[in-house]
Design a protein around this nucleic acid. Structure first.
Lengths: 215, 215
DNA sequence: ACCTGAACACCGTTCAAGT
DNA sequence: ACCTGAACACCGTTCAAGT
């Protein structure tokens, strides 16, 4: 079982979600396709368990960091750790927190995040919504990122800079009267950093939360 | 072409993303499978064009609403309209804003949102990040929602209330000492409304943005 | 308890050929 | 310019059978 998950994660890491097929996995394990069904009921379950397997390592990273004075700063640090893990493994974004039933580490991570909100002056509903919002920012940014590389970039034929630049050029061709905002931000878009973008989104949410908690 | 997209959207609406196959679509159009390839180069392109097709209607809804005094309130209204559209069509969440090259209505929507930030005291980078954050909240909540129904609920065998209740019961069984946050919010989770959850996340982001803009 | 080969019912995509 | 039938190379999943 352990090796099924390890090899599944290895396939996902090497070439993303489409690379994880029962046939490829079976070949790597040196067995038949049907064997995998002894460990797992379906591909969905395989994905859930593989996801939870790596969330376990994220959770360990998060637990290493000592809790600080400010719960919101702790929330920020935890969200950043989680986001970093998704940057390393873009496939994670799509499956993370999909099924807390099968993903017990995800549930623990959810609890870990939520515990920080217990230190804030909020009611139960506000706490529930706050954690949902933070997870939403992570997943939203991750999804945005995970879908970005359109195979050219994975092949190494085109790097990220050139890929963004191509979009930027197309945008600069647009009529400035009709697309004033696009022209306003095209230089920011060109060569932008996903992590910056994520941090800004997270900080807006956390600023709103701090305001709400009166802290 | 128009009818290809209309029927594709119809299939997606009726039974979600897995229902849209070239064979099912061809049958509906009363033709052969290969015909579709005259209009579209791949399934990805079909999905992008179908998505942009419905984003066009969302855009029309958004343009109907008159601009108000407060740009942030306008941003909220636009985001809510967008979210409502995704509630009606959960499959949208996964493809929305995936490719602004093929999705010209999505680009226009992005511009529409961004134009509100031009009315705020922000620099270009802040504006870029603000719109990304808002789109991120929408997509993040939409993804969370879109993956929720695990077929039982689609079959009508189990309604949403019961589905949530089942999770809530499992959570109530957890050790309160180990999962204090889960116990804090389990009653909120039970029977919660996705729209409430989304609105809260959006409001946190917008509160942060208002603070940043000093408005 | 654990694994297998072979089949089943699907997919997206291609291609030579038709009007 | 538009459409087709038939094939190709895959999928996830099942099942009877093996150790």
């Amino acid at each position: 079982m352990e090796s099924v998950l390890t090899e599944a994660v290895a396939l996902l890491d090497e070439a993303g979600a489409p690379a994880l097929t029962f046939r490829a996995l079976a070949q790597r394990l040196g067995g038949g396709v049907a064997s995998i069904y002894w460990y797992v009921e379906s591909k969905d379950e395989l994905l859930d368990r593989a996801t939870d397997h790596v969330v376990g390592t994220v959770l360990a990273d998060i637990e290493k960091a000592a809790p600080g004075d400010d719960p919101i700063d702790d929330l920020r640090a935890m969200a950043m750790t989680l986001f970093d893990a998704i940057v390393d493994r873009p496939w994670l974004g799509a499956y993370f927190m999909r099924n807390t039933d099968l993903q017990s580490n995800s549930l623990r991570l959810y609890e870990k995040l939520g515990r920080q909100t217990l230190r804030l002056k909020l009611d139960a509903r506000q706490r529930f919504h706050a954690v949902s919002a933070i997870v939403g920012v992570v997943v939203g940014s991750a999804v945005d990122m995970g879908q970005e590389p359109p195979q050219e970039i994975l092949d190494g034929a085109v790097d990220r800079e050139e890929y963004l630049g191509r979009f930027a050029s197309a945008w600069r061709e647009l009529d400035p009267a009709e697309y004033p905002f696009i022209h306003e931000i095209v230089d920011e878009f060109d060569g932008h950093d996903d992590v910056d973008q994520f941090r800004s989104a997270l900080d807006l949410t956390l600023a709103g939360l701090r305001l709400q908690a009166g802290a």
